[in-house]
Design a protein around this nucleic acid. Structure first.
Lengths: 96, 96
DNA sequence: TAAAGTAGTTTATTTTATAAACCTAATGTT
DNA sequence: AACATTAGGTTTATAAAATAAACTACTTTA
């Protein structure tokens, strides 16, 4: 009846991050933070989890002299997201 | 960009319960438990939260000599669910 | 050169979700 | 009759999550 919802994606902020990264080639920490309205601390933690799951890549470097973190979604992230959407549909019936 | 997801509904089991109750006039504890694959303890707790939020009504009585709990969704539950679905759409783009 | 800002990370606290243990009554079982 | 088992839950304890607050390290500005 109801499909299981991948707990890594069933989190408001992580879902927002992945959803955002689905629409762009890459995005940096500050941009993601602004778009998702997240606090830096929360975002830092959640990006880490997504990276450890292999759903995103996180590249830390410098832009000029400031630290700069760039994220992008991986193929595994894309398919996890797509599966999550399918699973959600089992909860939402035809109103979606 | 991303709408807030009602935390009361953004829980796998509570979402399943509400989603199920959207499709029936009422359902009893055991039926909900079976349909959602929940443990009794977890279901008991989550039904309580939904009731306290005013999203469902929970009527406890007896069927023959055994306890019997019947649940149904309230108008507030229906609109909360519908708003939740709208909010979700902001995360899912056009794949939904 | 001191204060303030940027870009994060780490740690601590609060919430949640969940399972395990428990309760009460009814129904077999010997 | 006494005891175990099942049904239908509830309560409590634990593990996992989310989040905010505090902190780090460096840079820019006054």
């Amino acid at each position: 009846m109801f499909k299981e919802l991948n707990p890594l994606l069933h989190s408001e902020l992580r879902l927002a991050v992945v959803s955002l990264l689905m629409t762009v080639e890459s995005a940096d920490f500050v941009y993601i933070k602004e778009r998702t309205n997240a606090t830096a601390g929360n975002l830092s933690v959640q990006l880490d989890k997504l990276q450890k799951a292999g759903y995103i890549t996180v590249v830390k470097g410098f832009k000029g002299k400031k630290p700069h973190t760039t994220c992008s979604i991986t193929p595994e992230g894309i398919s996890a997201f797509e599966e999550y959407v399918m699973a959600l549909k089992s909860y939402l019936g035809d109103r979606i």
